[in-house]
Amino acid sequence: MPNVKLHYDIDGNDFTVAGQASSNLKKVLKQLGVSTEVIRKAAISMYEGEINTVIHGKGGAADVEISTDKLIITFTDHGPGIKDISQAMQEGFSTATDEARELGFGAGMGLPNMKKYSDALNISSVLGEGTTVEIIIHLT
């Protein structure tokens, strides 16, 4: 069975390009004829993940793997890591910088939204080394 792999580099110095990977992923999913509901879930998760990777991870990458039944998006960064993952998953909790808050980020909804719009979310993080967030969305 074929599977499609997409790779997006996420620049750690520029919030304003966040959304490009999401836009590209939406197009690919439309080309595959994936349902509007799944595209919406993927778009929101991708966008939140991109922004998290910029704000908290100081940049990194997003890798997308599409197979016949599911979509896996893996965000990898080499940022400071997450001290307390269960705290990070709480709605409203944020460690965003003032700069990010000025741009309207830092509402503490990033990871909770990614969890809400995906079918599974796995985080692994090592302090001082970085974080990997994997989300799975079923296509059917």
Binding site: M1, P2, K30, Q31, G33, T68
Partner: peptide
């Protein structure tokens, strides 16, 4: 109505192959 004119093939597996070819 949604007019999806982007999809590559009605068969998902064929659409995946075509997407790989495009890349």
């Amino acid at each position: 109505k949604y007019r999806n004119n982007m999809y590559l093939d009605e068969d998902f597996a064929v659409a995946m192959q075509k997407l790989e070819q495009i890349e």
